[in-house]
């Protein structure tokens, strides 16, 4: 579950990115975070991934209040999240396998478990057989799927994606969204920041609209949506 309670975020240059933002995403829910560029979507994701801390207010993820989490606890916290980036953030000098295995390697998972889980994750995103290929040799859509496989390989409870379809054509974007839906189906909480309104309408999930750092429309989770937290 994700909960923002009266969150303010002001950057050192004085720009206020979020102003009194409150919303909730229930466990197992699939939610779009929408708004135009610069509206504050990225700031929400940065607070969730602890790249930034709120100036005021509290952010709670899976029951854990993250605002004052000590720096040494951040790696363990991040291992419970799956993060997908618009620009993939892949290690281009490593094969697909190593990219996907990274979250497991940093969490000291046993080698045989890593192998099993990496192959399963690659299978889920349709990249079986590409283990030894360099990401640079793959298409943009395939690179995004590597990013998704990396995000889900450690079986996170929350999956956060920042404009995951930003560089993809509509067909590929739908494919990627369907992948996210499949993760939601197995109980993963999915929060996707996007400004692709056509896709949002097509997938008809709950939407939190942010503009100028304020939440303009956040319908509460429908009763029975998601799974019990």
């Amino acid at each position: 579950m994700i909960r923002f309670d009266h969150v303010f975020k002001q950057y050192p240059n004085g720009r206020e990115a979020l102003h009194d933002v409150s919303f909730e995403v229930k466990a197992g829910e699939f939610v779009f975070l929408t708004g135009r560029s610069g509206a504050g979507k990225s700031s929400v994701l940065k607070l969730l991934t602890l790249i930034e801390r709120p100036t005021r207010g509290t952010v709670t993820v899976n029951g854990q209040e993250t605002s004052d989490l000590p720096a040494r606890a951040i790696p363990a916290y991040r291992r419970r999240l799956g993060i997908v980036f618009q620009d993939h953030q892949l290690l281009m000098d490593r094969p697909v396998y190593d990219n996907v295995a990274l979250p497991l390697v940093v969490s000291d998972t046993r080698f045989r478990d890593i192998d099993k889980r990496v192959r399963a994750a690659l299978d889920q995103v349709g990249l079986t057989g590409k283990e030894r290929v360099s990401p640079a040799e793959l298409s943009i859509g395939e690179q995004q799927r590597i990013g998704i496989a990396r995000a889900v390989v450690a079986r996170p409870t929350v999956l956060i994606a920042d404009e995951p379809t930003g560089n993809l054509d509509h067909g590929l974007a739908r494919e990627v969204m369907n992948l996210f839906r499949r993760f939601q189906d197995v109980g993963v909480t999915v929060l996707i920041a996007t400004h692709d309104m056509a896709l949002v309408r097509e997938f008809a999930q709950r939407e939190i609209l942010i503009d100028e750092g304020r939440v303009f429309s956040a319908t509460p989770p429908a009763p029975g949506s998601g799974v019990a937290a």
């Binding site: 953030q89 990274l102 940093v106 969490s107 450690a154």
Partner: peptide, 10 residues
């Protein structure tokens, strides 16, 4: 290093 930290690397 940034990516490694973002996926939980200490």
């Amino acid at each position: 290093i940034e990516v490694t930290k973002l996926v939980g690397g200490t």
